[in-house]
């Protein structure tokens, strides 16, 4: 009977669609598939790129890798789905990806109307302007009548309109599709100003022939909290992503790094480190994982600061200062709830 009903089912689906089994929690699904399906961007300097060997690297894939390390103990057990600004939310809502880590701004409507859940913020960004130094512009308010290169379909487009309207200055939008296209257009002088998130400006500027000939204006005209997100309706899964991210931030705060984590895991004087790394209590069981989940994530991917410095920090060509993305103890606004 079972055979027949299965046959009938697949026949009914016109031989084209197979149900992937009854949907239990996302964690169970991920465990049974044996890998995490992670939505990332199609390429954004520092945040998502392929290395020479063809593997995805960057600040955003690092989140996926940390989650895979926590669940499987293997950062390779991630499959990446590249999504564009237009396909990312559908890919997540339709279940094509389990988590979206794709420099996506947390906004009210995305969190509520699109039925998604942002589980945290891994980068506080804001929209800025870059102009050639020779224009002699020192403030965005001097940009009256300027032509502005702007990526379509993003929040930056809306922010720009809002900002120029409130300040009652005119501009001419030059719509472009990708960061790279923007750079080319900007260099060719087809627009006077390039506006995007400050992180994007930093990386674009770093790739110019003479970075010092271009200035990033001091105004930051928007709040762009970027973070990973999941579908509505599976809080257990959201917890895993949220606390993996928090574990990385807390690890930096407590001075746990990928190098010393092995030593610290054997037990320290600090009870919070012990709880985080599983030598005291069993926090992992509360989210359906084992005791060593956070230890693995930190060991294999690193704490927040390490990841930041590796991909976008001062030593990289992108050269972003920690700024607001520093720990609250260092004057930033990164603040993880306690592990207790």
């Amino acid at each position: 009977m079972k055979t027949l009903s299965k046959f009938a089912l697949s026949a009914a689906a016109a031989g084209l669609i197979a149900s992937a089994g009854a949907s239990a929690g996302t964690l169970d699904d991920v465990k049974s598939k044996g890998f995490l399906q992670c939505g990332i961007s199609t390429g954004f300097p520092g945040f998502a790129f392929t290395d020479d060997a063809g593997n995805w690297q960057g600040f955003d894939p690092a989140v996926c890798k940390a989650v895979a390390a926590a669940i499987f103990g293997d950062t390779e057990k991630v499959k990446y789905t590249t999504t564009t600004g237009k396909t990312r939310f559908t890919a997540l809502s339709s279940g094509e990806v389990d988590v979206l880590a794709r420099n996506t701004t947390w906004t009210f409507s995305r969190d509520t109307d699109l039925k998604l859940d942002f589980v945290g913020i891994n980068y506080y960004d804001g929209q800025g302007f870059m102009v050639p130094a020779e224009l002699g512009v020192s403030s965005a308010k001097d940009l009256d009548g300027a032509s502005v290169c702007i990526q379509t379909g993003t929040t930056t487009e809306l922010n720009l309109a809002d900002y120029f309207r409130t300040n009652n200055i005119s501009y001419e939008a030059v719509p472009i599709e990708t960061n790279d296209e923007a750079r080319t257009n900007y260099v060719a002088g087809r627009c006077d100003v390039y506006t995007t998130d400050a992180s994007g400006l930093a990386s674009t500027r770093s790739a110019l022939e003479d970075p010092s000939a271009h200035v990033v204006l001091p105004e930051i005209i928007s709040k762009e909290p970027l973070g990973p997100l999941v579908r509505h309706g599976d809080s257990e899964w959201a917890d895993i992503i949220r606390w993996t991210l928090n574990a990385m931030i807390t690890a930096e705060e407590l001075g746990v790094t990928s190098e010393n984590v092995d030593k610290m895991a054997t037990g320290t004087d600090n009870p919070e480190i012990n709880r985080l790394l599983g030598s005291e209590g069993d926090l992992g069981a509360m989210i359906g994982l084992d005791k060593a989940w956070a230890w693995r994530a930190i060991k294999m991917v690193g704490n927040y600061g390490e990841v930041f410095e590796q991909f976008i920090g001062k030593e990289t060509p992108i050269g972003i200062e920690r700024g607001v993305n520093d720990l609250w103890t260092n004057g930033g606004i990164l603040y993880s709830p306690p592990f207790r």
Binding site: G43, A48, F49, T50, T82, N179, S206, A207, P317
Partner: peptide, 26 residues
Amino acid sequence: VVIIGLLDPLGIGRASLSDTKWQGLS
């Protein structure tokens, strides 16, 4: 197809150009 996130040569190019080691060689 690059617009819907499939990585044809142009998409691979974009992903590769995002590597800061090679940025700007479009």
